[in-house]
């Protein structure tokens, strides 16, 4: 049985995640007038039309591009050694400390409470077309999956093969992958909630909403 309290206590010890801000590609990096410890915002607005805080500008082939904060938080670390220098793609230029929101804590807990169906190999995953249609109409929380059901399409090296779901019958409670993104082998694709555990899951959620205090 899941010990929610202890997991919650565990998370409370470090109620944040440290995100690496990386150079999206090569280029010359110039930090904006920003310091370690400064707070930053993610993009916001009804349509995400207001961009997040600019951390740096990277210029490649005379084309300057802003590197924006993708999460709300503060700058734990700024690698100023890269200022005004050429960087390779994927270099960590800053660390952003993001305090977990209620939804994110729920997300972490659910990963432990739900039955996870993992990616068997590194590939891109899609829902099978008929499932995809249902998902788009009714949302994933209304779809029951059964053992042996053809649920996914695995796409790699330009080939697509079907993948059947194996595990207990239940509702798709969470979807962990994005289309067009590679998923590493062993990473969860979906979280399944067997019907008899629905009440436990809902208990988890309500407890987080009561007990978790969001930090700035």
């Amino acid at each position: 049985m899941l010990n929610i309290s202890s997991i919650l206590e565990e998370i409370k010890k470090t109620p944040y995640t440290d995100l690496s801000v990386r150079a999206p590609h090569t280029g010359t990096l110039v930090f904006t007038d920003i310091n370690e410890g400064d707070s930053v915002n993610s993009s916001s607005g009804q349509w995400q039309e207001i961009p997040g805080t600019k951390i740096a500008t990277i210029t490649r082939e005379k084309n300057p591009k802003p590197i924006l904060a993708t999460q709300k938080g503060f700058l734990q670390k700024l690698h100023m050694k890269y200022n005004n220098s050429f960087v390779e793609a994927g270099v960590e230029i800053a660390v952003l400390r993001h305090f977990l929101s209620k939804q994110e804590v729920v997300h972490i807990l659910l990963q432990k409470a739900l039955h996870l169906f993992n990616a068997p190999e590194r590939a891109k995953y899609y829902f099978a077309p008929d499932i995809d249609k249902k998902l788009k109409i009714s949302g994933h929380k209304n779809i029951t999956v059964t053992d042996g059901m053809d649920l996914f399409i695995v796409s790699r090296m330009k080939r697509e093969i079907p993948l059947a779901y194996h595990g207990p019958e239940g509702l798709i409670y969470e979807v962990y992958f994005e289309q067009n993104q590679n998923v590493d082998a062993g990473k969860p694709l979906i979280g399944i909630c067997p019907p008899d555990q629905l009440s436990i899951i809902e208990d988890v959620i309500s407890r987080v909403y009561h007990e978790w205090q969001e930090q700035e």
Partner: peptide, 19 residues
Amino acid sequence: EDKSVTCPNAKTHGCLDLW
């Protein structure tokens, strides 16, 4: 002019910078 520009849809459509 020898430079490249970014398509406004680059985020959503994965467009490469254009020369």
